[in-house]
C-alpha cells in the first residue's frame, strides 16, 4: 500500500469527489494564493517594536534606584498584562454579541482572543512572581491583581477546556459563550473583593507615573509591541478557526448531497 498523496487535484477519501468534473476546478488551483499583506505588516511592525523595545530596555534605560536591574522586567510584564486584559475583555464582549446574534466570525474571534489572552496571562503569572521575589521578598502574595489574574486565567482556561470537551456543536459553542460572558462581571467582583482584602501592588500609571524619559519610551515601545504582537497572534488563530469553519461547511454540504442521493 502506498501512502496516499494529498494534493489539490486528488481526493483520497471520496471516489465520488475524485470523479467530479475537472473543467472549472483546474482554474481554482491556479487562483493566486492571497497573501494577507496587512497581517504580515502587522507582524512586522510588532516585531520591529519589540526589537527596539528590547534594545532600549537593555541599552538606554537606567537601572531603578531601589530595585536595580530586576525592575527591567516591568516593561514586558506590564505590556503582557495590557495585552491579556484587552484580549480577555474583548473575548467576553464578543461572546455576548455571539449569544445575542449568532455569528461565526464573532465566535471565532472570541475564541482566538481567549486563547491569546491565556498565553499572555501565563507570561504574567511567571514574570510576576520572579519579580515579586526580588521586590517584595516572596514569590506570591494574595494581593488583588495577582489573585485576580490567577482566577481570571483559571476561568479562561476552563472556558477553553469546555469548548474542547463539548461536542463540536452549536450547544457547545453557546455554552462556552455563556461562560465567557459570565466571566466579565465575575472578574469585576473578584477585583473588588480582593482589593478590599488588602494589597501592595504598585500603581504605576495611576500614581506618579514614570519620571524618566527613556523609561517612558521603553515602556510604550514594549506595550505597543506586545499589543500588536497579540493582535497578530489573534489574527493567525482567527484565520485558523475560520478555515476550520469553512471546512466544516464543505463537509456539511457534501453529506447533505449524499443524503439526498440516497433518498432519491
Amino acid at each position: 500500500m502506498t501512502t496516499p498523496t494529498i494534493s489539490p487535484t486528488t481526493s483520497p477519501e471520496s471516489p465520488e469527489l475524485a470523479a467530479a468534473p475537472r473543467a472549472p476546478v483546474a482554474m481554482a488551483t491556479r487562483v493566486p494564493v492571497r497573501t494577507p499583506a496587512a497581517l504580515l505588516v502587522l507582524l512586522g511592525v510588532s516585531l520591529a517594536l519589540i526589537e527596539v523595545a528590547l534594545w532600549w530596555i537593555a541599552a538606554r534605560t537606567p537601572s531603578d534606584i531601589v530595585l536595580g536591574l530586576s525592575q527591567k522586567i516591568f516593561y514586558f510584564h506590564v505590556g503582557s498584562a495590557f495585552a491579556m486584559l484587552l484580549c480577555l475583555t474583548s473575548a467576553s464582549f464578543l461572546s455576548l454579541a455571539d449569544l445575542l446574534r449568532p455569528d461565526d466570525r464573532a465566535d471565532a474571534l472570541a475564541q482566538s482572543l481567549l486563547e491569546v489572552g491565556v498565553i499572555f496571562a501565563l507570561c504574567i503569572l511567571t514574570s510576576g512572581p520572579l519579580w515579586a521575589r526580588k521586590a517584595w521578598g516572596m514569590y506570591w502574595t494574595w494581593e488583588p491583581r495577582l489573585t485576580l489574574t490567577l482566577l481570571v486565567t483559571l476561568l479562561a482556561v476552563s472556558v477553553i477546556a469546555l469548548r474542547a470537551m463539548s461536542a463540536d456543536s452549536g450547544t457547545g459553542r453557546r455554552v462556552g459563550a455563556a461562560m465567557a460572558v459570565m466571566g466579565a462581571p465575575a472578574s469585576y467582583l473578584i477585583h473588588v473583593a480582593v482589593k478590599w482584602w488588602g494589597g501592595t501592588h504598585p500603581q504605576v500609571i495611576q500614581g506618579g507615573g514614570i519620571q524618566n524619559a527613556d523609561m517612558r519610551i521603553a515602556f510604550w515601545l514594549a506595550v505597543f509591541g506586545l499589543l500588536t504582537f497579540a493582535a497578530a497572534l489573534t489574527a493567525t488563530r482567527y484565520r485558523d478557526l475560520r478555515l476550520k469553519q469553512r471546512g466544516r461547511a464543505i463537509r456539511l454540504n457534501l453529506s447533505a448531497h449524499q443524503l439526498r442521493q440516497r433518498r432519491a
Binding site: 489539490p8 481526493s11 465520488e16 469527489l17 467530479a20 468534473p21 472549472p24 476546478v25 481554482a28 488551483t29 487562483v31 494564493v33 492571497r34 497573501t35 494577507p36 497581517l39 504580515l40 507582524l43 512586522g44 497578530a232 497572534l233 489574527a235 493567525t236 484565520r239 485558523d240 478555515l243 469553512r246 471546512g247 461547511a249 464543505i250 454540504n253 457534501l254 447533505a256 448531497h257
Partner: peptide
C-alpha cells in the same frame, strides 16, 4: 508566526478548490 500565516493562505486556496468541486458535484 509569519510562516504560519503564509501557509494558511495555501490551505485557504485548497479549501476554495475543494468547495468548488463539491459545488460542481452537488
Amino acid at each position: 508566526v509569519g510562516r504560519t500565516l503564509l501557509r494558511q493562505a495555501k490551505v485557504e486556496a485548497e479549501l476554495t478548490d475543494l468547495s468548488e468541486r463539491v459545488d460542481v458535484l452537488t
